[in-house]
């Protein structure tokens, strides 16, 4: 199944695929962010794949990499029972096209990613903070956000950057 997905994607969006990886039988496809809506729409609508369930959308912060963030889309097909993982890379301050038009559930997930990482989603109907209050400053899940609130006396791994601040 994974080969088929990859083959079809390569046929249609050849220039959009940046990287392909497979780990423990879970395929991951890194794509250009400009194509993400079209690829998602295709994967959802194609009767052979019908990825109708967005099981998760989250972000990862890699402070040492150049496009700093990764947005991860975990797709699942309830009718066909298969999965695929898409990733797009985005730098600080840039925005990713929103997939709310493809799956409604992406709405809250994208708001969470915006709240926690500060990634903007273009075309999102209502991009506000979801978990933290409106007047909160900063994006807590970024790696350079202070990990602890109070200094812990017995911290054994203080010298492991960038996990502990101060």
């Amino acid at each position: 199944m994974h080969d088929l997905i990859l083959k079809k994607l390569k046929e249609r969006f050849a220039e959009s695929i940046l990287e392909v990886a497979e780990f423990r039988k879970e395929p991951t496809i890194v794509v250009r962010k400009e194509y993400i809506i079209r690829i998602c729409r295709f994967l959802k609508d194609d009767p052979e794949f019908s990825f109708n369930f967005l099981s998760d959308l989250c972000a990862v912060d890699w402070p040492e990499r150049k496009p700093r963030f990764e947005v991860v889309y975990n797709l699942y097909s309830i009718s066909k029972n298969h999965r695929v993982r898409l990733k797009v890379r985005v730098d600080d301050g840039e925005s990713v096209p929103s997939v709310t038009s493809v799956w409604s559930t992406a709405d809250w997930h994208e708001r969470e990613a915006f709240d926690m990482f500060g990634i903007k989603f273009e075309g999102h109907p209502d991009l506000r903070r979801i978990l933290m209050s409106e007047d909160w400053e900063g994006h807590p899940l970024r790696k350079d956000f202070p990990l602890t609130k109070e200094e812990v006396m017995f911290n054994y791994n203080k010298d492991r950057p960038p996990r502990i601040m101060k």
Binding site: L131, M132, S133, P140, L141, F145, L147, T148, N157, I164
Partner: peptide, 15 residues
């Protein structure tokens, strides 16, 4: 409006 029980577990797990 959610987030009143947001605990920051994901952040704590980082360390």
């Amino acid at each position: 409006d959610i987030g009143f029980l947001h605990t920051g577990i994901e952040k704590t797990m980082e360390n």
